[in-house]
């Protein structure tokens, strides 16, 4: 039962969050908006991974979550540095 709940209740909520983030990525007037949205996208994905792990009772995706967290932070930093330099 828990597995169904995780899959059919939590996932749609995250999917909705995903769509909202994408809206901001596409429409975001200024560059930093898009960067923030991308950052949020990472968190949504981490959420998805967590839900998926519970749903499939497989802890193996945690490493993916860690990598994602580490590496997306870097993306944001690079963006920030680029935005600061103008253009």
């Amino acid at each position: 039962m828990l597995r169904a709940l995780a899959l059919w209740a939590v996932m749609p909520v995250l999917a909705a969050a995903l769509v909202l983030t994408l809206y901001r990525i596409v429409r975001g007037p200024s560059a930093p908006d898009r960067v923030v949205a991308l950052d949020l996208l990472t968190v949504v994905v981490i959420g998805m991974i967590a839900a998926y792990e519970v749903a499939t009772d497989q802890p193996v995706y945690l490493d993916v979550a860690i990598t994602l967290a580490l590496v997306s932070f870097l993306g944001t930093i690079a963006f920030a540095r680029y935005v600061e330099r103008g253009r």
Partner: peptide, 19 residues
């Protein structure tokens, strides 16, 4: 920059497919 961000989003999407 917007293009790069959007591309990043596409990449993340595909990674989720892998998951």
């Amino acid at each position: 920059l917007a293009a790069v961000a959007a591309l990043g989003a596409v990449g993340y999407g595909i990674a989720v497919v892998f998951i």
